[in-house]
Nucleic acid binder design. Structure first.
Lengths: 145, 145
DNA sequence: ATATTTGATTGTAATAATTACAATTTATAA
DNA sequence: TTATAAATTGTAATTATTACAATCAAATAT
């Protein structure tokens, strides 16, 4: 899952040089939940004390460019990152900055059919993402850290 | 549409004091397309040269709090604001920061039915918004590889 | 109409997140 | 092993946003 060799395979598969910083950032991204750049920085610093904040931003940028990570942003919160790049939707908690992934192939099928040959405002749709706003009825502790 | 009296009515209707700054900011918000705070600031300054940037932020905050405006944010762009507060979706251009509103009551009905009594991850849904990613009929040589 | 009060606006300065850039170091391919 | 192209680092700059105290104005009471 967050196996080092798997990470190395993913980086090289995208033509990226493998560095300790990149491996560690990608690992922190995969094992934490929608972390911010700062959360990743703090996490990775435990292993690589010399790590620069700039490097974290650089690596996140290239991961996003290579589609190994996505950016996640709410209306109020700062930028967060997501190593889950398979198609999915998001549940946004309206009373906190918590964001959860949501997979629903059945719904995707419905949406795909609905938008087949549909071009609102002459728009060519390449992806459909849902933002489900609401509340989690069970209080749950933070996953990060 | 962007009639001054209409704006005054909206502000007072939300229990807000009516000031020239508020009227002008709301007007700029209504007649422009998902403007940033800075775009609003520059626009309003033409009429009110003494305007402070802080005031623009203050007013936008209170408009959002009173549900007279919404925040709109893409994954890369800075904060934008939207005076259209009726339920709608967004078309996000993947090759620019352009965002357009999209209304589709038929689709809303389908989604409402689909999520009736559905609580993914114990989540109580209060609103469903679509992000349609794609391109606005772009000429071929504008597409980046 | 005038005074009072409550809230809005302003200017400055601070903060937070992110980016620019030049120097240094490192991973990889020859 | 060496060359080189790319990655990392540290610093400084930039950008967006917020904090805050002083001033000012709109609504309300007198």
């Amino acid at each position: 899952m967050a196996d080092i060799n798997d990470i190395i395979r993913k980086l090289t598969g995208k033509g990226m040089k493998v560095t300790p910083q990149r491996v560690a950032v990608y690992e922190a991204l995969s094992t934490n939940y929608h972390p911010t750049a700062e959360e990743i920085y703090r996490k990775v610093q435990e292993k690589l004390p010399g790590l620069s904040f700039t490097t974290v931003y650089n690596i996140l940028d290239v991961l996003v460019a290579k589609d190994l990570a996505h950016r996640v942003k709410t209306e109020t919160d700062i930028m967060r990152y997501d190593a889950v790049t398979d198609h999915h939707h998001h549940l946004y908690c309206t009373s906190s900055d918590r964001v959860e992934d949501y997979f629903d192939p059945e719904l995707d099928e419905i949406l795909r059919n609905y938008f087949e040959n549909k071009h609102p405002n002459g728009f060519i749709i390449s992806d459909i993402k849902l933002q489900l706003m609401g509340q989690f009825n069970l209080p749950k502790d933070d996953i990060i850290n």
